Simulated scan of single mutants.
Amino acid sequence: MMNVERLRTLCMVAELGSLAAAAAALHITPSGVSQQLSRLEKELGITVLERQGRGVRLTDAGTLLAHRGHDILSRLERAESEVASLHGDVVGALRLGAFVSASRTVLPRAVATLRDRYTQLDITLTEGEAEVMIPRVLRRQVDLAVVDNWSTLPMEFPRDVKTDFLHQDVADLALPADHPLAERAVVRLDELSGITWAAWNEGTEFHDWLAQSLRAHGVEPRIDFRVADFATHLEFVRRGLAAALIPRLAGLATPDDVRIVTTEPVLSREVLALSRSDNDRPTVRAGLAALGDAFAEIAPGSTTSPGA
């Protein structure tokens, strides 16, 4: 009989391309991965892995088994979800993931609600952006992830991922109070040429979204200050060093000497909950309900908004 965890290990090596990467994803050592695959080979009487230079590669048999293994693991996950649903007990582990603003402003509320409702539920939270969370959901490392999807840079989600809408958010323009545009009620994006920006690091979704949004209106952004924190962005604005785009979900008070202005067009994003389509356990449904309740409690105007 084939061992499921060894099959899972093989699938992870096939997906990530190395023993070290698979070990990191599975939270075991590379030697532990090697041992799992050696035992799998003994069980099946075939070779699934062979050396290639300094690395390894799957044999034809290993590649075929990994391909079939993804389907086997998905069917097993679905069967376990269906059995768990027969009883409907919300017990065991729920692994949550969320992007920075949500993890700071909304997830503590959702986790507190879950702890109050389900005393036998073990909850963990990992912070990360969509580019990190989507692979973790697919690899079954995270059960439920909260991600954002900007209208000007929409994502395509893998077919094995289910999305549930949670919230609609808006990003406003933060300007130094003495900037010529700061007294305007609305500023068009095509008016923002020649401005220095504070934004996230290059290669992150938020950085790419800001650049794409401005370039779509003929503005090539100069991003001199790359920091993964909206409060720091506002501090650069307060000092007269930059402008920034600040999501209302960040829940930040507007500092003195900063003006928050609406943009034209409005820059919006959907906040979504992601889970594997084959994972419909009671724990996931309970987590989704708690997230929905937590986002529904966000009152209009309770976060950073024009005039705040």
Results as ranks from 00 to 15, higher is better:
residue 118 Y to Q: 04
residue 112 A to W: 15
residue 35 Q to S: 00
residue 117 R to W: 03
residue 47 T to D: 09
residue 74 S to W: 14
residue 59 T to W: 14
residue 40 L to W: 12
residue 72 I to W: 15
residue 69 G to M: 07
residue 83 V to L: 03
residue 40 L to Y: 06
residue 56 V to D: 01
residue 104 R to Q: 15
residue 54 R to T: 05
residue 46 I to Q: 05
residue 104 R to V: 13
residue 93 A to P: 03
residue 87 H to S: 11
residue 36 Q to E: 10
residue 38 S to K: 15
residue 51 R to T: 03
residue 45 G to L: 06
residue 68 R to N: 07
residue 71 D to H: 08
residue 67 H to E: 15
residue 118 Y to L: 02
residue 76 L to D: 06
residue 117 R to M: 01
residue 101 S to A: 08
residue 97 G to L: 07
residue 37 L to N: 03
residue 49 L to D: 03
residue 101 S to I: 03
residue 53 G to R: 13
residue 105 T to A: 04
residue 87 H to Y: 10
residue 96 L to N: 07
residue 81 S to G: 05
residue 43 E to N: 04
residue 50 E to P: 00
residue 112 A to Q: 14
residue 95 R to W: 06
residue 107 L to N: 03
residue 51 R to N: 00
residue 46 I to H: 07
residue 59 T to S: 01
residue 44 L to D: 04
residue 52 Q to D: 09
residue 82 E to L: 12
residue 72 I to N: 09
residue 64 L to G: 12
residue 49 L to A: 00
residue 57 R to H: 10
residue 61 A to P: 07
residue 100 V to Y: 15
residue 75 R to S: 05
residue 118 Y to N: 06
residue 85 S to H: 07
residue 113 T to I: 00
residue 41 E to R: 02
residue 102 A to S: 08
residue 44 L to F: 12
residue 108 P to I: 08
residue 115 R to M: 02
residue 81 S to E: 06
residue 36 Q to T: 01
residue 71 D to A: 10
residue 96 L to T: 10
residue 111 V to Q: 06
residue 101 S to C: 04
residue 84 A to L: 03
residue 85 S to K: 10
residue 103 S to G: 09
residue 76 L to I: 13
residue 76 L to R: 09
residue 113 T to S: 03
residue 57 R to E: 08
residue 75 R to I: 05
residue 44 L to M: 14
residue 88 G to N: 06
residue 111 V to M: 08
residue 92 G to M: 10
residue 96 L to G: 01
residue 50 E to H: 05
residue 40 L to D: 00
residue 47 T to H: 12
residue 86 L to C: 05
residue 118 Y to S: 00
residue 113 T to H: 02
residue 45 G to W: 11
residue 81 S to Q: 10
residue 65 L to Q: 09
residue 66 A to S: 11
residue 96 L to C: 06
residue 109 R to W: 14
residue 117 R to H: 04
residue 90 V to F: 14
residue 67 H to L: 14
residue 43 E to A: 08
residue 114 L to W: 15
residue 65 L to F: 10
residue 72 I to M: 14
residue 69 G to P: 08
residue 74 S to A: 10
residue 104 R to C: 08
residue 77 E to H: 06
residue 37 L to M: 09
residue 50 E to N: 01
residue 34 S to W: 14
residue 66 A to R: 15
residue 51 R to M: 00
residue 102 A to I: 09
residue 104 R to T: 13
residue 103 S to W: 11
residue 89 D to S: 06
residue 51 R to D: 01
residue 62 G to T: 11
residue 111 V to T: 11
residue 109 R to Q: 05
residue 94 L to R: 00
residue 74 S to K: 13
residue 65 L to A: 02
residue 58 L to K: 08
residue 72 I to R: 14
residue 82 E to K: 09
residue 96 L to E: 05
residue 49 L to E: 01
residue 62 G to S: 15
residue 50 E to C: 01
residue 38 S to N: 13
residue 39 R to V: 10
